[in-house]
Design a protein around this nucleic acid. Sequence first.
DNA 1: CGCCCTTTCTGGTCGTACCAAAATATCTGC
DNA 2: GCAGATATTTTGGTACGACCAGAAAGGGCG
Lengths: 242, 242
Amino acid sequence: MAVVPQDTHKKNGRAADDVVRCLVAKIHAGEYPDGSQLPPERSLMEEYGISRTVVREAVQTLSRQGLLEARPRYRPVVRKPGYDAAISALENVVTHLLSDQNGVRNLFDTRIMIEVSLVRRAARHAVKEDIAALKAALEANEAAIPDSDLFYQTDRAFHGVLYDIARNPVLPAIHSAYVTWLSPQWSQMPRLPQRNRENFEAHQRIFDAILLRDPDLAEQELRDHLDSAWLQVCRTFDQDRG
Amino acid sequence: MAVVPQDTHKKNGRAADDVVRCLVAKIHAGEYPDGSQLPPERSLMEEYGISRTVVREAVQTLSRQGLLEARPRYRPVVRKPGYDAAISALENVVTHLLSDQNGVRNLFDTRIMIEVSLVRRAARHAVKEDIAALKAALEANEAAIPDSDLFYQTDRAFHGVLYDIARNPVLPAIHSAYVTWLSPQWSQMPRLPQRNRENFEAHQRIFDAILLRDPDLAEQELRDHLDSAWLQVCRTFDQDRG
DNA sequence: CGCCCTTTCTGGTCGTACCAAAATATCTGC
DNA sequence: GCAGATATTTTGGTACGACCAGAAAGGGCG
């Protein structure tokens, strides 16, 4: 049951895995710089003494993982993956995990947890530029109240600023993951200027709490905001089922 | 309803992608229940009217993503992936992102962020069983002070309890991801009973703060603990370089 | 009935061949 | 001489067939 990866060079079945490891190492070592293109498959099969089948299998693996960008009939291009590439590698798996309301709720809970951390952090450590960015996002959000599509965009952008404040490149990637994975739930919701206004006001309260340097208040406002959003989603979802 | 991929030629290049989508859909729909085994490749190639090459490519993709478990000479087994399967799909990408000290720091910062949330939550909402679990983990940790390997295990276990308290299955997966990805940095550190005792005492202080239902104190103790751990790692790392 | 051996099945790898599109070389017209 | 059109080569995508080795299934013998 426990799949314990033992010797890395066991001739065990997977010939492609060796090639994958080797290519990863070479990319890692800079032998294939970022942006350069991999040798042709036919060269690789000579170099490694394997068939093209195996080469293609290895290339495909790396491509799916985001280390290579393999467009249909171009040479594979080496891509040092960003944090967002990591996210996209999860697509199919996450789709499964979100197949039930429970999975969505679990993911949403982690989002609440993260954003709570972010607003607390912002309330304590935000500098002038952060405040300015938040203010700008907030104003754009307010201006978009009549236009639900635009409001959705500015909504995401406002939350996105929160993820930027920590200046940790992992976080924006997580934000974009949340947006991508949770949007199916969100997109089916009816968009009303009334709801938009309520959401904007929630954003405003969060912003105010950050201005007040009050982490606890900011946390509370954010929780209220996201809990409310969750209720909206649930109502929409239940309506669809009923 | 049968997605007969004869007309899927329209798609550019990737014939395998269509098969992947189709198989994902069928797994998703329960047509291939969890734990069941996929039809033989030779059946699939008839069913979809494609060559075995493409079948194998699709199977391999799903396997790499964790939706299938494809051992060397067995039929692929359908696996509704857990949150941990998602983590393992990131292995190669994360390896890249952690190739420099910056990436490690960024990841570690998110760990601090998450665990801060967890201890705050624990301080506010932990129930008797949670406290008991923490207490047990703490005692095991204390008993392991003389044995550095065992101490490492109990250390992880103590933090793991924190991830369990929220009863969100995403979180333990994240914990195991942190352990997996950050352990290369950690494992090179010298293990001294003296350091073990300091770490244990940090755990104790965190536990006490949770007992006191004091989120702010718990947060502070945790930050001190993890910051200290980071400093240890840095010292080790700098020594290696110097 | 159970053990052992043989046959079949199945995935892993290889090799060849062909196609279509991209890249490159070549040619043509000005 | 050079730009643009054309022919050639390269290269990835797919198909087909073959072989191997281990696993599963079937059958014969004790």
